[in-house]
């Protein structure tokens, strides 16, 4: 898809940014409307679908059994995979995951793993022999910008509403659950776009085509930062980074409330 098609609008966005405005007149630190639904996939052990301003991502959690990694015989395994489906934009060609999809999977993985959101030592059946494999799979259905935060919300909601299946004779018993998956943390990304000197949260697709740089910061409730990814070829000053970290912590708390509400609603419905 030709980048030049975005150029006119990108130019307009940059001019507005110089005056301190966004193209849709959104406040700089405001997220677009978010809706999350959990428990939507019958065969998944946890699932969620997120709509963030038109960007739609579905996440599914599945437990399987397998051998632990040789260097961590006392831990279950976490595996995160993501695909940016050709549904999501005219620019996506069907095929194996490209660098964007691989980056997405890896950064979501990092936020969950580094925050120790899931205690992998609790997912062991027989140490050194048999453990639970926790798969988190993400599928981006529609890209209206900021698939990172949308995916982060979907993964978090799916994990927060997931249940661990029973195991009998070293086999998973489908649709029979032992207990809820306990999360120590709910890590969530907040993504910022920098256009000229202006920094804004939750970029829409037009802003992503105009931005100079992007910063995605994952935080947990107590204010710790658990993952950072800078994107784009522009740069940030130290002051800007510190500002974004503070905002990410605040936004993370707001987003966490939305996730928790969705999980509660899923239990009732």
């Amino acid at each position: 898809m030709n980048e030049f098609i975005w150029e006119f609008t990108a130019d307009r966005i940059r001019k507005l940014a110089m005056k301190g405005f966004r193209i849709d007149r959104r406040p700089l630190l405001k997220y677009r409307p978010i809706s999350i639904e959990t428990g939507i996939i019958y065969n998944a052990d946890g699932s969620a679908i997120v709509n963030l301003g038109g960007t739609k991502v579905v996440a599914g959690v599945k437990f399987e059994l397998g051998q632990p990694y040789p260097d961590t015989p006392d831990k279950g395994a976490l595996l995160v995979d993501a695909e940016i489906l050709p549904h999501s934009s005219p620019a996506v060609e069907p095929g194996p995951p490209d660098e964007d999809a691989i980056e997405l999977a890896r950064i979501i993985d990092r936020s969950i793993r580094e925050s120790k959101a899931v205690d992998l030592t609790k997912l062991v059946i027989r140490e050194g022999e048999l453990v639970y494999l926790l798969f988190v799979d993400l599928r981006v259905l529609d890209n209206n910008g900021n698939i990172i935060d949308a995916s982060s919300l979907a993964a978090a909601a799916a994990l927060a509403s997931a249940q661990i299946p029973k195991v009998e004779d070293d086999q998973i018993v489908r649709h029979e659950y032992e207990r809820a998956l306990e999360l120590n943390e709910i890590p969530l990304y907040t993504t910022f776009a920098k256009i000229g000197k202006l920094i804004m949260v939750d970029p829409r697709i037009e802003e992503e085509h105009a931005m100079d740089a992007r910063m995605s910061i994952a935080t947990v409730d107590d204010g710790h930062v658990t993952a950072i990814q800078k994107g784009g070829n522009g740069s940030f000053t130290k002051g800007e980074i510190e500002f974004m970290i503070e905002e990410a912590i605040k936004k993370g708390r707001d987003l966490r409330k939305v996730v928790k509400e969705a999980v509660e609603d899923g239990r009732k419905n």
Binding site: G60, E64, D81, P86, F135, D137
Partner: peptide, 18 residues
Amino acid sequence: LRYRYTMSPFSVPERKSP
């Protein structure tokens, strides 16, 4: 005409490889 049918890994009882 191109038609591409795919199943998400979590759509089926046993997680399907992508």
